[in-house]
Amino acid sequence: MITDLSFYVAAVPAVVLMGLSKGGFSGLGLLSLPLMALVVSPVQSAAIMLPILIIQDVVTVWAYRRYWDRRNLAILIPSSIVGIVSGYLLAARVSDAAVTLAVGVISIAFAVRRLIVERRAMPPDPTKADVPHGLFWGTVIGFTSMVAHAGGPPFQIYVMPQRLPRDIFVGTGAICFALINWIKVPPYLALGQFTHENLTTAAALFPVAVVSTWLGVLLVRRTSGERFYTLVYLLLVLVGAKLIVDGIRTFL
């Protein structure tokens, strides 16, 4: 287990942010890996975070076990698997910076447009979970999750225009990413990233992971549906800006 205090100074806030994100405030989790990468390598930080994500998924899925959209999951899960496999096979040929930058630009454009459109006197009708768009965005979710750990924004871009009830939106995302995280386990095993040090360090952070995720769930349930969607759109703008900065920084 890592015993350096400076690691936990960065890791504890990172796990708290991920917990709030898992609880429903989507997007905050993208700040976690960069925080941990300040004190350990990006690959090691991702390996430590994956068991934590799986524990947090258990909490979120249990909290929202009665609230999820079957049609969305039936469309997104198979296509996400295709995206994950594609990302794994093409990882050496794809620029992480290019993917990150593209996701950032698309996220900001989508969120700003939706914020403007939904402020009109007659906002557009909710969209439906259709197969062609769902297969496309599901593949993007899996690919960006595998290549750049950025599957959240594509999920929001596809699902948020449907204006699902708040709890169903969060529950659908919880189940979707819980399955995606389990699918990521074999590649991490193949890469030898589940070392004794990484696993014991992750285990030491489990209590923080569980408490912060429950806190996220409680905060979301105290937020009205309309305010929740507005907040998630704003978070998507901030996350998109961060992805753009990360992408440009990597290019430079």
Rank of each mutant, 00 (worst) to 15 (best):
R163D: 07
V105R: 04
G192M: 05
L179S: 08
H149P: 13
S145D: 13
V112M: 04
L101S: 00
T144W: 12
A111V: 00
G138T: 01
D130S: 11
F110A: 08
A109E: 09
P132E: 05
C176I: 09
G192I: 01
A102P: 08
V170Q: 12
D130Q: 07
R119K: 12
D167F: 08
H133P: 01
W137K: 05
G173Y: 07
R120N: 13
V170L: 00
P186F: 10
P153C: 13
A174G: 10
K184V: 02
I180K: 05
I183V: 14
A121P: 08
A121S: 11
I106C: 15
G171S: 15
R120C: 09
Y158H: 00
V147K: 13
I175R: 00
F155Q: 15
I157S: 03
S107P: 06
V147I: 07
P186I: 08
A109L: 15
G104F: 11
Y188G: 05
I108V: 15
D125P: 05
R113A: 06
N181M: 04
M122C: 03
P154E: 08
V103I: 15
G171L: 13
G171H: 14
F177H: 11
L191N: 12
I157A: 10
T100K: 15
Q162T: 14
E118K: 00
Q162I: 03
T139C: 12
P123F: 01
A190G: 10
R93M: 15
V140N: 07
F136L: 10
L101E: 04
R120P: 10
L115G: 13
D167T: 09
E118A: 01
R163T: 04
T144I: 09
R93S: 15
E118D: 07
M146D: 06
V112R: 01
F143K: 11
G104Y: 07
Q162V: 04
V103C: 11
D96C: 05
H149I: 10
G104N: 02
F177V: 04
W182F: 08
G142Q: 13
R114D: 06
P187H: 14
P123Q: 04
P154M: 04
